[in-house]
Design a protein around this nucleic acid. Sequence first.
DNA 1: ATGGTAGCGCTGCTA
Length: 258
Amino acid sequence: MRIATWNVNSLNKRMPRIEEWLAYAEPDVLCLQETKLTDANFPAMAFAALGYESAHCGQGQWNGVAILSRVGLDDVVAGFTDQAEEEVTEARLLWATCKGVRVLSVYVPNGRLVGSEHYEAKLVWLDRLRRGIEQVCDPNEAFVMCGDFNIAPDDRDVWDPAKVNGGTHVSEPEREELRRLEQWGLVDVFRTLYDDDRLYSYWDYRAGDFHQHRGMRIDLELATKPLAETATYALIDRFARKGKSPSDHAPMLVDFDL
DNA sequence: ATGGTAGCGCTGCTA
């Protein structure tokens, strides 16, 4: 079972590339972030024509998360576990079950500058999400949260920890939130397969960062141990970040032996 | 060359 995640930075702009990528990467499940669409404008029919059921949680101009699946898509819910659907104002969380695997598509707030109100809100947001996971999920079940965490787990996951984003994405309180998820029972699946540095998933559009390979690994799949132990292969597809009109993120996929 | 882009949507915000 191939489960992928991709911050597409506008589904409208990226649709041709996404359709091309679905055809050659053939994920069973694809989590999307930053669709920047309302639900009414989400192209469910186009995905259905490619064999994918889909669900979307959008607000329009910003954010927006989706899950595509060709192996079933059940129990779709948006938002925090302690939040009624009508209270979901920021479209950053979408849950579903795909062939027995609980999947969460997640777009963590950016945080902007360390110490800013946005940074503090990011930490509160992460804490609320983790507490919800601990209440609703079981570390012994098959569960994977996929998406743009806006946190680089380790210094080897960034080109220069002193120069990125005014300190966000690499600060200790943010990384502590990741470690709390790990303490509960989640595993950064990519790191069970690769130890190397300089394996990035995001490069700023500005200053030729992609071509200078000034990037960060902030797109993650965190899986419970029983699921993570079945992982046989992972790939951050840098090819999909090249060429005309790419997203600033590459897609990542993981093969689980299910 | 000491700044650089991209998307949304129409002015500046977000990343």
